[in-house]
Design a protein around this nucleic acid. Structure first.
Length: 641
RNA sequence: GCCCAUGUAGCUCAGUCGGCAGAGCACUUCCUUGGUAAGGAAGAGGUCACCGGUUCGAUUCCGGUUAUGGGCUCCA
């Protein structure tokens, strides 16, 4: 006599065991039809799950987040079924749900082609149209292994062998296709209404680069065609914001084959870069930092002593001269310790905050390079704080404060914090790691900010707090980091004299707020779709002469603005005003100032924004104060289009 | 580094089933002196990424290299 409790608290009692979907049907035929799966006592189950005892039941439809996951997961199975029908010799492996979609990895002797992808998608649609019933059965482990082995599915058999003995195994079948799966799945393939295969990729078996490479097919799936269309439009929007395209169009920077992963900054891009650097410099000056500059090329021996060679020597650029081997620095920390080590330091010198716009090079794998977002030559807004153990908490909370202040000035408010703990590959004793992780945890707890744990993702020398932010179209970028280091100062012989006269090793905090300036600028460009806020815009205003007769008046206006410290040019070309406006608006210049006969006569400018807003004619003084106000706000106010 | 794809004018892209390479925009010159997102005309511009092979002939087919793109691994 199961008594079933629904989410709204209502209860239904049945004389004998019922399936979940039967309960849904009792509530309403519409709900039964919409049922994708159910949640029974907190566990996701298939719609036909037999409820024998009292239970809490929640029906999952496509409107629930879990429902969408189930749709995507079932789409992965549909993909595998289509592939097996078209290419019987392909072996199935795994097919999980990912953000916005799903994928399935296959072992197949030849590469899939884009034409194959079309054929597979067509077959998927056909199978969905057939509305095949999805059934499932629990199966004994050894029988499951035998089943897949006999079907030639070696990978699947290996997957089962790696599943713990105690776990029950479930086989899901639809038509001629059977796959091992935890489930749940949609009741029938007709429930899969809006999907699209998106890309082909290679992927290592079990994610290990020593293993053979499988072929991965990615797809996206949504409850209905409208949601699918919206998703595809979002992708198109992201593509329009691509910093590589915008960078070229606005003449900010370029890359070329002779220097892969290294940026050629053009005049306009470099203005943005310098503006950001100067902003950070001002922040640091008011927070008690010293700024230093250290060599690009340092003898190998220092990197051996610091532990860098053994931990990530692979990505270090090496060079040599006169039979000595040098490394091009991939990080600034060992160099900063060298400065710290000059002269005897007292506990009175701590905390010592040493910053550098540190130019670093890392020989990233060629396949990892990506515009400004992943480069080989970059500049960190780096700093190292040498302090005592007792100062850690104050310093770290000061840093969190700095990070939030800076992000706000750049117009980012949605910041996520993650605490990354000890990785497998690390230096230092477990005791030190305990101490370091606890110090960071305690500081985070004291801030009352929300944060989450990211186990195993710490740096090799210490745990860290990472800061990620969400941009205007919802993407998340990891930027800032605060890393505790109890190891490197000792390795490189840093010490200070404690109050009792003894020598002690300082704790070092590695930190960056923006991470790499290159990467940050890439993020900013995408966030603003190229329309950088006034304080960062490479050109803040262009003065446009209406005809050649206003050339002198327009030049004068431009000169006045330049003398006031603004980045301004004049456009005196013999072109129509429409053309000039179009060109500069497309270059995302915040303000376009038109000087025609009327303005020249009244000593005013007609002001128009890059987004098309006409502010009318105003005296130059009035425009200047507008500029000053807007710049003072930085990104904290509006983010105009 | 691994898998797949791509590389044609400054940019965006056509095209050649192997036979002297095209468009739009940009550029140059001329005309136009125009009031808020493209005024008109003419001209110039390419070793079809690089190296090798097949071929009477290769931008096209094949192999290699390189860069870029999408993934995988990595991201200290």
């Amino acid at each position: 006599m199961p008594r079933i409790t629904l989410p709204d608290g209502l209860q239904r009692t049945y004389p004998e065991p019922v399936t979940a979907v039967e309960v849904a049907a009792d509530i309403g035929p519409g709900l039964a039809k919409a049922t994708l799966a159910v949640e029974v006592d907190g566990k996701l189950r298939d719609a036909d799950f037999l409820i024998r005892d009292d239970a809490k039941l929640r029906v999952i439809t496509e409107r629930d987040p879990e429902g969408l996951q189930i749709i995507r997961h079932s789409c992965a199975h549909l993909l595998a079924q289509a592939v097996k029908q078209l290419f019987p010799e392909a072996q199935v492996t795994i097919g999980p749900v990912v953000e916005d979609g799903f994928y399935y990895d296959f072992a197949f002797p030849r590469p899939f082609t884009p034409e194959d992808l079309e054929a597979i998608e067509a077959r998927m649609k056909e199978l969905a149209r057939q509305d095949l019933v999805v059934s499932h059965q629990v199966i004994d482990r050894s029988r499951a292994i035998a089943f897949f082995r006999s079907a030639g599915e070696e990978y699947k058999a290996r997957i089962i062998e790696s599943i713990p003995e105690a776990e029950p195994l479930t086989l899901y079948s639809q038509g001629d296709f059977t796959d091992l799966c935890r489930g749940p799945h949609v009741p029938s393939t007709g429930r899969l209404k809006a999907f699209k295969l998106t890309k082909l990729a290679g992927a290592y078996w079990r994610g290990d680069s020593r293993n053979e490479m499988l072929q991965r097919i990615y797809g996206t799936a949504w409850p209905d065609k409208k949601a699918l269309k919206e998703y595809l439009q979002r992708l198109a929007e992201a593509e329009k914001r691509d910093h590589r395209k915008i960078g070229r169009r606005l003449g900010l920077f370029h890359f070329q084959p002779e220097a892969p992963g290294m940026v050629f900054w053009h005049d306009h891009g470099w203005r943005v870069y310098q503006e950001i650097e100067n902003y950070i410099r001002a922040q640091l000056q008011s927070r008690g930092y010293q700024e230093v500059r250290t060599p690009q090329i340092i003898d190998r021996s220092l990197w051996e002593k610091s532990g860098h060679i053994s931990k990530f020597g692979e990505v270090m650029f090496m060079t040599q001269s006169e039979e000595r081997e040098f490394a091009i620095k991939p990080m600034n920390c060992p160099a900063h310790i060298q400065i710290f080590n000059q002269g005897l330091k007292s506990y009175r010198d701590l905390p010592l905050r040493m910053s550098e716009f540190g130019s670093c090079h890392r020989n990233e794998p060629s396949g990892a390079l990506h515009g400004l977002l992943r480069v080989r030559g970059f500049t960190q807004d780096d700093a190292h704080i040498f302090c005592t153990e007792g100062q850690i908490q104050d310093e770290v909370s000061g840093l969190i404060d700095l990070v939030f202040a800076v992000y706000r000035d750049f117009g980012f408010s949605d910041v996520q914090i993650r605490l990354a703990t000890r990785p497998e590959n690390r230096v230092g004793s477990d005791e030190l790691w305990d101490q370091a992780e606890n110090a960071l945890r305690a500081t985070l707890e004291a801030t009352k900010l929300e944060w989450s744990l990211n186990p195993g993702d710490g740096a090799f020398y210490g745990p860290k707090i990472d800061f990620s932010l969400r941009d205007s179209i919802g993407r998340v970028w990891q930027l800032g980091t605060i890393q505790l280091d109890f190891s490197m100062p000792a390795r490189l012989d840093a010490s200070y004299v404690a109050p009792d006269g003894s020598r002690k090793v300082p704790v070092m905090i590695h930190r960056a707020v923006l991470g790499s300036l290159e990467r940050f600028i890439g993020v900013l460009i995408e966030h603003h779709a190229g329309a950088l806020p006034l304080w960062l815009a490479p050109l803040q205003a262009v003065v446009l002469s209406l005809t050649e007769r206003q050339a002198e008046a327009a030049s004068t206006v431009a000169e006045i603005l330049k003398n006031q410290g603004f980045r301004v040019e004049s456009d005196l070309r013999n072109e129509t005003i429409s053309l000039k406006i179009r060109e500069h608006a497309m270059q995302r210049v915040p303000y376009l100032l038109i000087v025609g006969a009327r303005e020249a006569e009244n000593r005013t400018v007609a002001v128009r924004t890059r987004s098309g807003e006409d502010l009318g004619a105003m005296p130059l003084e009035q425009f200047l104060s507008r500029l000053r106000n807007e710049i003072a706000c930085r990104g904290r106010n509006v983010l105009e289009g």
